[in-house]
């Protein structure tokens, strides 16, 4: 008698677990999938039942988003900014992390602490001062060359992205370099390799797993970022999220939903594809040194 009661509560608990799991999965999958579905609907379909399947595949939305709303150009801008920022980041962070984690020198402790303090600086606070600083530089330049350089410049934006990602990246890479035994450097030294050679041909290649995690995280960060891009690029060289922001506002006002959802698909498809390919690495890497932005 008691045994059957036990089984009953166990089964009930199991059912409860699955209901909960499936409910959460649905609340995540349905809205995302719905956006994909909406992106191929025609405009009048949005006035009917939101759950109706699309009447046909209306690719016109994507053409409108890409060409008329400029998402094609913004896509290119986003690729330029994201890849440039990743290059800047690796060039700056890898040597710095290597030296800071494996060399003792005058002030090394202070510099380590200095960079770690950067983990607490949130980009949202310093966006306006950065804007004013660049604006000031541009104003001085204009007096000499009559054209600015720092605002509306994708490379400058990429550099600032890279710098704001430095504290976290150096922190993550350092914690990996610290785990490597010093035998490698000693062996390289005996073989007559200089410091630069040792770093480039021995130590950096070994850090490949961490470098991949750094690239994955920061790709998502740079690709999705919008507040710096919105502030530092007031002109028309927008990145994708800023373009999408305009599309959201404009299309809601003009009640032109199709291209808006097409724009959302254009922004999230690359991240979704990347995520599905590398999801295991990403969720494992997160626990190495996760700091949420």
């Amino acid at each position: 008698m008691k045994e059957t009661k036990r089984i009953n509560t166990d089964t009930l608990y199991k059912v409860f677990i699955y209901v909960a799991l499936i409910t959460l999965a649905i609340t995540i999958i349905i809205p995302v999938a719905w956006v994909f579905m909406a992106s191929i609907k025609e405009n009048q379909e949005f006035y009917g039942n939101p759950w109706a399947l699309p009447q046909g595949i209306h690719f016109e939305n994507f053409r409108e988003a890409f060409v008329e709303a400029g998402m094609g150009d913004y896509f290119l801008n986003s690729i330029i900014v994201t890849s440039l920022a990743l290059v800047f980041l690796l060039v700056l962070a890898l040597p710095a992390a290597y030296v800071l984690s494996r060399f003792e020198f005058v002030g090394s402790k202070f510099i380590n602490g200095f960079i770690k303090a950067g983990l607490f600086i949130n980009v949202s606070y310093i966006t306006v001062p950065i804007f004013l600083m660049l604006l000031g530089w541009d104003q001085s330049l204009r007096q000499i060359f009559d054209s600015g350089f720092f605002l509306n410049n994708l490379s400058v934006l990429a550099l600032i992205y890279a710098v704001t990602a430095l504290p976290f990246t150096i922190f993550l890479l350092s914690s990996y370099f610290e785990t490597l035994p010093s035998d490698f450097e000693e062996a390289a030294n005996i073989d007559g390799a200089g410091y630069f050679r040792t770093m480039f041909s021995i130590m950096l290649p070994m850090a490949k797993p961490s470098i991949i995690i750094v690239i994955l995280f920061n790709f998502l960060l740079f690709w999705n970022e919008y507040i710096l891009a919105l502030t530092l690029i007031p002109g028309d060289k927008k990145t994708l999220p800023v373009g999408l922001l305009n599309l959201l506002a404009a299309d809601r006002a003009a009640v032109n939903y199709g291209p808006m959802y097409a724009g959302m698909v254009i922004v999230m498809l690359p991240t979704l594809i990347l995520y599905i390919i590398v999801q295991k690495r990403l969720t494992q890497g997160m626990t190495v040194g996760g700091v949420k932005g």
Binding site: P31, V32, N224, L248, M260, M264, V267, M268
Partner: peptide
């Protein structure tokens, strides 16, 4: 469950507007 975390805030704003 991890998918929302990889989406841009602008996308989340768009999804929740819908």
């Amino acid at each position: 469950f991890y998918i929302p975390n990889i989406l841009s805030v602008v996308i989340i704003a768009g999804i929740f507007s819908a």
